[in-house]
């Protein structure tokens, strides 16, 4: 199901409530209680999921990931946006209305 939303870089994003997360062999697995669906976010997806406990801008997430992983900023940002779009489509994250740095 698509929400027809798209991510706006200036808007902070945060994870939705109603998901049970568990670590399995270094990967993050989620159960969405409302839909009864299970997701595997993988290792890096799990790191991103943990960061989204608080509202964060995409720039802030990229900065955090660059401090942990050996990757170019442009590559990181492009792949992060694609991943976050998937999370948004599944209703696992939401965008805040206000703009933050």
């Amino acid at each position: 199901m698509s929400t027809n939303q798209s991510l706006l870089p200036a808007r902070p994003i945060q994870r939705e409530t109603g998901n049970i997360a568990s670590d399995m062999n270094g990967e993050k697995v989620l159960l969405n209680v409302n839909k009864g669906k299970y997701f595997n976010l993988g290792e890096i997806g799990g790191v991103i999921w943990e960061l989204l406990e608080q509202p964060m801008s995409i720039r802030s997430i990229v900065d955090q990931l660059l401090s942990i992983y050996a990757v170019e900023r442009a590559t990181c940002e492009q792949q992060l946006l694609a991943f976050l779009d998937q999370l948004l489509d599944e209703g696992l994250i939401f965008m805040h209305d206000e703009v933050r740095d």
């Binding site: 299970y38 890096i44 997806g45 991103i48 942990i68 050996a70 590559t75 792949q79 991943f83 998937q86």
Partner: peptide, 16 residues
């Protein structure tokens, strides 16, 4: 030393 980057992907698990 930084960790190796992998493309993050969302995988839907089909568990009944």
């Amino acid at each position: 030393m930084k960790k190796e980057w992998e493309t993050p992907k969302l995988e839907v698990l089909h568990i009944k």
